[in-house]
């Protein structure tokens, strides 16, 4: 595990979600989740999904930037 494949958040922002085992109980893959951009991935996926440099730049996310909010809760206040 290193940084987030989508937003490059540092290791401490990434949590382990689940480990997939085979019938013998051996580790097959691990699912990770980024607390900064909420990306979820499995370490066995093709590079196009989980390698920052292979992924199309279009799909990068900068969690600091504003994104559209669906039904903004502030509208009720």
């Amino acid at each position: 595990m290193s940084t987030c494949p989508r937003c490059q958040a540092a290791e401490e922002k990434i949590r382990v979600e689940h480990k997939g085992l085979n019938a013998q109980g051996e580790l097959v893959w691990t699912i990770f989740h980024c607390n900064a951009c909420e990306f979820t991935w499995r370490d066995s996926e093709p590079a196009i999904s989980i390698d920052y440099d292979t992924r199309e730049a279009f799909f990068r996310v900068d969690p600091e930037k504003p994104y559209p909010v669906i039904m903004p809760p502030a509208q009720y206040k």
Binding site: C37, E38, F59, V61, P63, Y67, V69, I70, M71
Partner: peptide, 23 residues
């Protein structure tokens, strides 16, 4: 009141809908 990053998701028009913050 919570909204979380969601998407992209490949949708029925055949293109990805973008990243949004949703319930």
């Amino acid at each position: 009141g919570v909204r979380t990053f969601e998407g992209p998701f490949g949708e029925f028009p055949g293109s990805y809908s973008g990243v949004r913050k949703i319930p």
